[in-house]
Amino acid sequence: MYSSESSSYGYQTSSSNGPNPAPTGPQEEDLIKWFQAVDQDKSGKISSNELRQALVVGNRSHFSIEACELLVKMFSSENSRMIDVQGFKQLFHYVNQWKTSFHMFDRDHSGAIDEKELGQALVQMGYRLSDKSVTALLNKFTSKPGQITFDNFILACVQLHQLTDAFRRHDTQHTGTITIAYEDFIQAVVESI
């Protein structure tokens, strides 16, 4: 049996691809233009390499290819490893929410947050994790001793979101507790990473 500490799992999602659909209006037009500029081969879809050219962290360096691959996987339709304009809009909206959370706790503007700040950011995003789980996330995604940078924060959030979705599919009663067969657990984890 596996249990979360509460029935709160983070962002409330309307679909498996993000917390809410991307906003409409003038911002949508800008996102479409940005997507078209990033879509170098004009295929109507972008790859993780094309996405990497579009996403820049605070110090003007690009996101890691690993982060971009996970984001494309999360927002692609039917695991195509490519995202269309709708997936791009959802991705943009989601990354902006993560960015807001991250910068709220990166008070010294160093581009990294510590374990306590990571825990606070996750709580602000709706996750209720134990200190032990926050430490495990920090240790897995740390890039500086005891700190996590924005692009590794994105990696942690994507994996946490995917694992949460896998857990949520088995938590049909929304209790925060599931009973799961070993094979189902392995499949859920493998599909999430």
Score class of each variant (00 low, 15 high):
Tyr2Gly: 06
Glu5Arg: 12
Ser7Ile: 06
Ser8Arg: 14
Gly10Gln: 03
Gln12Cys: 09
Gln12Asn: 12
Ser16Gln: 10
Gly18Ile: 06
Pro19Ala: 15
Ala22Leu: 07
Thr24Leu: 13
Glu29Phe: 14
Glu29Met: 12
Asp30Asn: 10
Asp30Arg: 11
Ile32Leu: 14
Gln36Ser: 07
Ala37Val: 03
Val38His: 01
Val38Phe: 01
Asp39Gln: 03
Asp39Lys: 02
Asp41Glu: 08
Ser43Asp: 02
Gly44Phe: 01
Lys45Arg: 11
Lys45Trp: 04
Ser48Glu: 03
Glu50His: 01
Gly58Phe: 03
Asn59Asp: 07
Asn59Met: 01
Arg60Asn: 13
Ser61Tyr: 00
Ile65Phe: 00
Glu69His: 08
Leu71Val: 00
Lys73Met: 12
Phe75Ile: 06
Ser76Phe: 06
Ser80Trp: 06
Ile83His: 09
Asp84Leu: 06
Val95Glu: 02
Trp98Leu: 15
Thr100Tyr: 07
Ser101Arg: 05
Phe102Cys: 01
His103Ile: 03
Met104Gly: 05
Met104Gln: 13
Phe105Asn: 02
Arg107Ser: 02
Asp108Cys: 01
Asp108Trp: 00
Gly119Phe: 02
Val123Met: 08
Tyr127Pro: 04
Arg128Gly: 05
Arg128Met: 07
Ser130Arg: 05
Ser130Tyr: 04
Asp131Ala: 12
Asp131Arg: 15
Val134Asn: 10
Thr135Asn: 13
Ala136Phe: 11
Leu138Gln: 10
Asn139Met: 14
Pro145Glu: 09
Gly146Trp: 11
Gly146Arg: 09
Gly146Leu: 08
Ile148His: 09
Thr149Arg: 13
Phe150Asn: 00
Asn152Phe: 04
Phe153Ile: 01
His161Ala: 13
Gln162Trp: 05
Leu163Cys: 08
Asp165Cys: 13
Asp165Asn: 12
Asp165Lys: 12
Ala166Lys: 10
Arg169Leu: 10
Arg169Trp: 03
Gln173Leu: 09
Gln173Ser: 09
His174Ser: 11
Thr177Glu: 14
Ile180Phe: 06
Tyr182Ala: 10
Glu183Val: 07
Ile186Asn: 08
Ala188Ser: 15
Ala188Lys: 05
Val190Gln: 11
